[in-house]
Design a protein around this nucleic acid. Structure first.
Lengths: 258, 258
DNA sequence: TTCGCACCATGACGTAGATCAAGTTCAGCG
DNA sequence: CGCTGAACTTGATCTACGTCATGGTGCGAA
């Protein structure tokens, strides 16, 4: 619930929230700007946007902080301004990373709109700056601002399609193929050069790709014949063609914009 | 996949439509009623609903007909009135069943609203009655009818959460656990008695649960110690407690209404 | 009836990936 | 410098599950 807020001691293990700031006068207006520029918020009226921000908080979280836990009720819509956040779920002792959020983006919109419990837990990976907008405000504005309501539709449809794509990735490909395609996607995000950085810790990447860290190691070795070499976080793809021929990337799985 | 077809060669290459009926005057008004009663369509104005129906078709399809193929552009929003439809995806020779639709429900809403290509293919499992509403009409009405736009949000959020649940099911459970939980869900849908019918062909069920038909057979045997017995399509759960203790059903995965 | 054909069951086997148990590398720090 | 601990590698198994091959059991058509 509201334990995320102010003061010390939020979250189950006595977590700690530094640098909270209310949106009154003096606060970091770059964050407000970043939120406003998201498609989700860019179409709505100034008045309604102001109403949303009136009750919002911006907070900085250290790495490895639990932001919310599956099963809890949705109190805030989250907007990630900087850093990165892991969305995951657990059952019977195991857990699976379902998505990793990068700035600037919004998460747990569906639970907020439906006023339902979270299906996923969230935890910061790095130091992260997050805007928290009270869920009831979001629903109230949703009810009166049609442009916002339409933007919510687009965002949800996008998210829905993204999940379908990761499900196809998981069900239709082997772990080697998943890694190969992930590298190609990451390469494109990084600008397309033959050398680029992995901006994941490898254990996270393993969980994200649905495998164990040990097997990720082996998978990297398994891609060497296709011209992939690894040095720490740095990846080199020396034979683009070979890798693509093996990975067989497909827009209906790997193209994030479709 | 198109070779499965019966009767007169329908499907992507020159689609052909049995028993087509335009929504003019005389047509089956139960279908129109069924559509209107879906939450998605129940909130909109009579006028806009009529506009949607003006361009719509209702069609009966035989079993095993391909309705649409992933990668195609969305031409119609589909509403399943009776029968059942399989949504699946293919890559590199393999294919995976992503969902099975049952009446009365709508499918491929996200692609329709976004005017994007389908991420999944669809095929009838049984003889099915389906209402086809031109996608451009849906988007046009979406732009002018705020109640409809809001209903779309609810529907998408629901769908989004459903996919997340099946992803958790797949990533966090073994095939035995998936089958056990599926049986418990099916039992509940069928009224909760110890004996109930499986309304899936077993090979479909296998694909839906992400395993092979052979392994589904073995999985059924593997559940015998927990009081599950199978006779054709009829399932008997003789020891509810044991099965539940093994399956560990969880609302955040198995409760379709949350 | 008997043939043919799905669908399903079952056994033998192969493989992908998990698990367990050591190493290895490297950053931080005395 | 060397110590320590975390992230990563590596190799040796184990296990779940897929694959292949075979045989049974209904059920509709000739």
């Amino acid at each position: 619930m509201a334990e995320i807020n102010s003061g010390p001691d939020n979250n189950q293990s006595g977590q700690q929230v530094p640098e909270e700031e209310r949106w009154a006068g003096n606060c970091p207006s770059e964050s407000i700007q970043a939120v406003r520029q998201l498609h989700l918020f860019s179409q709505m009226s100034d008045e309604n946007f102001a109403a949303l921000m009136r009750g919002a908080y911006v907070q900085n979280f250290p790495p490895q902080v639990d932001l919310l836990t599956e099963g809890e009720r949705s109190d805030f819509l989250h907007v990630l301004i900087s850093g990165s956040v892991d969305l995951f779920a657990s059952w019977n002792g195991k857990d699976a990373c379902l998505a990793t959020m990068r700035p600037v983006s919004t998460f747990i919109l569906a639970a907020t709109i439906k006023d339902a419990v979270y299906l996923m837990s969230a935890r910061t990976l790095e130091k992260s700056r997050i805007v928290l907008i009270p869920s009831q405000d979001v629903r109230a504005v949703f009810d009166v601002d049609n442009n916002f309501a339409r933007a919510v539709v687009t965002e949800l449809a996008q998210g829905y399609r993204a999940v379908i794509k990761t499900q196809k990735d998981l069900q239709l490909r082997s772990s080697l193929e998943r890694l190969a395609n992930f590298l190609l996607r990451q390469q494109k995000r990084a600008g397309g050069g033959a050398v680029f950085e992995l901006d994941f810790e490898k254990r996270r990447l393993a969980s994200f790709l649905g495998m164990t860290p040990e097997n990720l190691s082996r998978a990297f070795k398994g891609l060497q014949p296709y011209g992939v070499s690894v040095d720490g976080m740095q990846i080199t793809i020396s034979n683009q063609q070979d890798l693509e021929r093996f990975a067989k990337p497909h827009p209906l799985i790997d193209d994030p914009s479709s």
